[in-house]
C-alpha cells in the first residue's frame, strides 16, 4: 500500500463517519436549527466523497449549490419564521413512525441490493476515466443528456417565475385572494391583505 492509497482509505473512513454521524444528527436532534446546520455537514462530506471519486467539478458544485444556496435558504426560512408553539403529539403517532420505518428500510434494502449488484471496479484504461471532468461534463450536457439538461432549466425557470408571482402580491387578482379565507391548521399567520394594499397604493401615488 503506497501513500496515496493510505490517504484515500483514511479520508474515506473519516468522511463516512462524518456523513453518517451528521445525518443521524439531522434526524435525531430536537432543535431544528441544529439539524439544519448539521445538514451542511452532510453535504460537505458528500462533496468530500465526490473528490475521492475524482469528480472535482461535481464536488465544488455540490458545495456551491447545496451548502451555499439550499442550506442557507433552509436556515433563512427557519430564522425568519419565529413561531413559538407548544409541542402537541399528533394522533396515531406510532402508526406514522412504523410506516416511516418500513419505507426507510425498503429504500435501504433497494439501494443496498443495487450497490451489491453493480460491478463498480473500473480499469484505468476505461473510457469513463477522464482527465478534465469539466470538458467531459460539458460534452455530455450538450449531446446525450441534452433533454434532461434543458428540462431541468425549464423547471427552474418555472419555479423562479412562480416565486416572483408569489412575492409580488399586486399581481394576484383581488377576487382570488378574497375567496381564499378558509383558515386551516396549516395556514401561516400572514399580514392582513388590507394593509398590504394600502402600502402599495401609497407607493403608486
Amino acid at each position: 500500500m503506497n501513500l496515496a492509497e493510505g490517504v484515500q482509505i483514511v479520508s474515506f473512513g473519516i468522511l463516512a463517519v462524518m456523513m453518517i454521524g451528521t445525518a443521524l444528527g439531522v434526524v435525531l436532534l430536537p432543535k431544528i436549527v441544529h439539524s439544519a446546520f448539521l445538514l451542511a455537514g452532510v453535504f460537505i462530506s458528500i462533496s468530500g466523497l465526490y473528490i475521492l471519486l475524482n469528480a472535482d467539478f461535481v464536488a465544488a458544485a455540490q458545495i456551491l449549490v447545496y451548502v451555499g444556496a439550499v442550506n442557507v435558504l433552509i436556515l433563512f426560512a427557519i430564522m425568519l419564521v419565529n413561531k413559538q408553539e407548544d409541542y402537541v403529539e399528533l394522533p396515531g403517532r406510532t402508526i406514522r413512525k412504523v410506516a416511516t420505518g418500513v419505507v426507510c428500510f425498503g429504500l435501504f434494502a433497494l439501494l443496498g441490493t443495487m450497490v451489491l449488484a453493480t460491478p463498480w471496479s473500473l480499469s484505468t484504461t476505461s473510457p469513463s476515466v477522464v482527465d478534465n471532468t469539466v470538458i467531459a461534463l460539458g460534452e455530455h450536457f450538450f449531446s446525450d443528456y441534452l433533454l434532461p439538461f434543458e428540462l431541468a432549466s425549464v423547471l427552474l425557470l418555472m419555479a423562479m417565475v412562480g416565486a416572483i408571482i408569489l412575492a409580488r402580491r399586486d399581481l394576484i387578482p383581488e377576487s382570488m385572494a378574497d375567496e381564499n379565507t378558509v383558515t386551516t391548521g396549516l395556514t401561516l399567520p400572514e399580514r392582513p391583505r388590507e394593509l398590504a394594499r394600502l402600502g402599495s397604493e401609497e407607493q403608486d401615488s
Binding site: A60, G68, M79, V134
Partner: peptide, 25 residues
C-alpha cells in the same frame, strides 16, 4: 493547480454565510 481552480474559490466562499448565520443566531 486544480482543474476546477477558480470555481473552488467561488464555491468555498459560499460556505461563509452559514458561519455568519450560525454566529448571529
Amino acid at each position: 493547480d486544480l482543474n476546477v481552480g477558480i470555481f473552488l474559490w467561488i464555491s468555498l466562499s459560499s460556505i461563509a454565510p452559514i458561519g455568519l448565520l450560525m454566529a448571529g443566531y
